[in-house]
Design a protein around this nucleic acid. Structure first.
Lengths: 315, 315
DNA sequence: ACCGTGCTCGCTCATATGAGCAGAGGCAGT
DNA sequence: ACTGCCTCTGCTCATATGAGCGAGCACGGT
């Protein structure tokens, strides 16, 4: 990287050539003619200019997206889309707001009129829904039952209806809780026409948005909603993360549990069948869960913030 | 120059593509295959990346040479070589030292064993000579007679001998003053074998170094050495600059004066015949003289400092 | 519904470009 | 001087690249 160790005439010539090439966009042949050199000489001067650091190329985005981290996440986990928002936010609420807006922009960008949108319930998904511009007649499908959250801004049903009505598309919703006390009740609920109709739409979903929880207190809405018995039972089975009700081990294997029988929502196989599932995790402590989700192969896109992205990439 | 106004997915894609192209040096075809795009799409993304400022290319030299100013001077006046030293120096002595070293490096770079070097007398030329590494057997020719300068570091003769002995080349010198009181004396001196022999070498000179004076008190060693009558006479003739004894009007026309008959040194025509004449002017106030010199067509190269270069370029 | 209008995309073909090679000096060691 | 080694240069030829074109598509006006 040492500066050109040549004489001043060569330095000036190199700089002039580099200017013509990189800034004025002339071709090497043109430059060669202008300076009376062979085009090979010009190419070598340009190589030298870059090798010596005389020409410096930098890629940087002055918006709130950290393109470098985004690309690294995308490469590392083979994702279709990755958006890392550069925000120092520590507060969960404003973080959700930021990520929600970013996810809304991403979704608006990648969705087409042919797409069918699936929405799981998560607070970040709610935040996204609020920031989402009207989509062109996109049908919206509810992926999970409702979790009762006293201070929540809306249930899974509300979010789906909201997005569908703004888009003018069909809303495939059902009224049922996410978890029930026993498998029989769950089977009965799934048998109900409304629920069955909604579930019948699942194979048609082409894009979905979900949240990610870490299987620890305060790191997963589902964890916090379950009984102590359920929590520890799943913990013993090696559950590390939940992606809107789909349980994963630390290395991303889907884990089927007795609890799965008692839930009304999408399962791992159905989720895997969706071409693009985007998750919106936040909080650096969730990194094990995010790693699990990204390794699972269920997830194709991510919207998150720098701190968590860094944590995920540092193996 | 506004940042990419597109969605985040496109921004990230563009940045990834730009990184692969500009930093990893992959071809557009390779990138297209890697990302599943057409090579045209890749080209358009790259264009957009540059237009939007996501990719920034800058050319800058962290040595003491201002490559941009150098190139502008070179372009503007059609010079073969131009070196602008970036120094805030105001002190004439240290400025001369800097420029002398830069000129020495330039000369060492561009001189070949076939060259014959001509040296005019100027303090900056002395400074250069002191910094000059041994040249490979280059003959050195004295271009001007001696100016008596009480505190000077050496006469024109000394400088030529010094350079020639370091190079191991022949020294073509003569002992004569630069100006004499009348034309007859000058003719007599020119007729002397020693002087005639030196002058016979002039057509062989291929590279020469000279100084530039502005025709005002304290801005030209020659001006300061002349009588009041000569000064004003030349001033009335429109003399603006002297290039080691060759007088120029403000727009660079060579001016022949009665004084020319009384000088022992190179004339305009002989100087024009030298393929490469390099001057080493300094001091921002000299800019009219430098402009005249550069416009005259007598001068092919320049070594100077930023302040003067700026002054010269500002019309 | 119908037709421009403007946009994006990927094609063709002429041109620009890079990899690798061979010849021409320069240099140090016999 | 000769030799081998090294660097620098410009060549050939396969490949990459850009300019310009027309097809496809969304949008907005009548």
């Amino acid at each position: 990287m040492a500066e050109v160790a040549d004489g001043p005439a060569r330095v000036v010539l190199t700089a002039s050539v580099a200017r013509r090439y990189y800034l004025d966009g002339r071709s090497k042949v043109e430059i060669a003619e202008e300076f009376g050199l062979s085009r090979f000489k010009v190419a070598r001067l340009l190589d030298a200019a870059r090798a010596s650091g005389l020409v410096r190329i930098e890629i940087r985005h002055q918006g709130e997206i950290d393109v470098d981290l985004s690309a690294r996440l995308q490469d590392r986990f083979g994702l279709q889309h990755s958006v890392v928002v550069d925000t120092p936010d520590d507060d969960a609420d404003s973080l959700r707001g930021h990520l929600g807006r970013a996810a809304a922009r991403l979704l608006a960008e990648i969705i087409t009129p042919q797409d069918v949108l699936g929405l799981a319930w998560a607070r970040a998904v709610s935040a996204m829904a609020r920031a989402l511009p009207p989509l062109p007649g996109t049908p919206v499908v509810q992926l999970t039952g409702a979790l009762s959250l006293p201070d929540g801004p809306g249930t899974s049903v509300d979010v789906v209806r909201e997005v569908a009505s703004a888009s003018g598309g069909a809303a495939h919703v059902f009224y049922a809780p996410f978890t029930v006390p026993d498998a029989a009740t769950a089977r009965a609920l799934r048998g109900q026409p409304e629920v069955a109709r909604a579930f019948a739409q699942l194979p048609l979903v082409t894009k979905a948005v979900a949240g990610v929880g870490l299987w620890k207190p305060g790191q997963s809405t589902l964890y916090d909603a379950l009984s102590e018995d359920d929590r520890t039972a799943l913990h013993r089975l090696g559950v590390c993360a939940d992606v809107s009700g789909v349980f994963l081990s630390a290395d991303g294997e889907a884990i089927t549990t007795e609890l799965s029988e008692r839930m009304i929502g999408i399962d791992a196989e159905q989720m895997r069948a969706i071409p693009e599932v985007v998750v919106i995790p936040y909080g650096a402590s969730k990194s094990p869960a995010v790693r699990a989700a990204l390794r699972s192969g269920l997830v194709d896109g991510i919207v998150t913030h720098t701190a968590l992205a860094h944590a995920v990439l540092e193996e």
